[in-house]
């Protein structure tokens, strides 16, 4: 059986909010490393990969590996019944038909118990190759969100150019064009507001803004986002949490 207790229900709520517009029916794969999911959107253009490490739960008990087939719209309905500060416990049998979710308030005088019906989900798993990226940019997640929301007003695509000078997001559409350039800067007082660029070679790639705007729903999970790019490979957008991560991969747009 599985028993996994999370101090803050808000963590799972934010994870589900971040991915539920991209993927609907997913498996939570529970194993010794924690609770993981990997799922592609219907168009096979984007992939979400998430891990909530076992260390982030206390306790984390698992007798054998199990997959919990979950409809995220249904899970969202149940999670709405939890306060962000509630303690959340997930429980399931070894061959589960349902997932139990128990919410307890910090004062320990309210216990809510819900059962979510599980589904059989046949999932395609993508072998994601280990990639040495040519450029890794870490920046405030709120800044990345603002840039994507601004540029999507002008175009459905953005070109990201990473060089020693900085990172430039540019777009062009029917009404005109626009760009935002960020220079590398180190904020000593507030490291989360720094922009860092690690570069082995310059990279220029074009991506659909619709997906990037969608990824930015994960901004609540982390004040920092990391963009990893190499020419002609999918973009990796990572939001790291204290004990886990949400990663998005996005296939580029490529010229004929």
């Amino acid at each position: 059986m599985l028993e996994a207790r999370l101090e803050q229900a808000g963590v799972l709520k934010k994870v589900v909010d971040a991915i539920r517009d991209l993927v609907q029916d997913i498996n939570f794969d529970c194993n010794d490393s924690g609770i993981a999911l990997q799922a592609m959107d219907n168009s096979h253009v984007a992939l979400v990969s998430m891990l909530l490490k076992s260390e982030g739960f206390s306790p984390y008990r698992l007798d054998r590996n199990i997959a919990l087939g979950i409809n995220l719209t249904s899970l969202t309905k149940v999670l709405r019944c939890a306060q962000n500060e509630d303690i959340l416990t997930l429980k399931a049998e070894d061959t589960p038909d349902t997932l139990s979710l128990i919410f307890e308030n910090a004062e320990n005088d309210r216990i809510s118990e819900y059962e979510l019906k599980l589904m059989d989900i046949d999932q395609e798993h993508l072998g994601i190759p280990e990639t040495e990226y040519a450029a890794a940019i870490s920046m405030p997640s709120a800044e990345f969100q603002r840039i994507c929301r601004d540029l999507i007003q002008l175009s459905d695509s953005v070109t990201i150019e990473a060089s020693k000078e900085g990172v430039k997001f540019s777009c062009s559409g029917d009404i005109g064009s626009g760009s935002v350039t960020l220079r590398q800067q180190n904020n000593v007082d507030k490291p989360d507001l720094s922009t860092k660029i690690e570069l082995t070679e310059p990279v220029t790639l074009t991506f659909s803004l619709k997906y990037l705007v969608n990824f930015c729903k994960a901004s609540a999970l982390s004040s920092v986002v990391t963009l990893s790019l190499s020419n002609e490979v999918p973009l990796l957008v990572e939001y790291a949490m204290g004990s886990g991560f949400v990663r998005f991969y996005l296939a580029p747009k490529i010229g004929e």
């Binding site: 592609m40 168009s43 096979h44 253009v45 984007a46 992939l47 395609e124 798993h125 993508l126 072998g127 994601i128 190759p129 695509s157 074009t206 659909s208 490979v233 999918p234 991969y249 296939a251 580029p252 747009k253 490529i254 010229g255 004929e256």
Partner: peptide, 14 residues
């Protein structure tokens, strides 16, 4: 004109 690729072009489906 650039066209949208899919992840299957870069990753192996297993």
């Amino acid at each position: 004109v650039k066209s949208q690729t899919t992840l299957g072009r870069f990753f192996n489906l297993s």
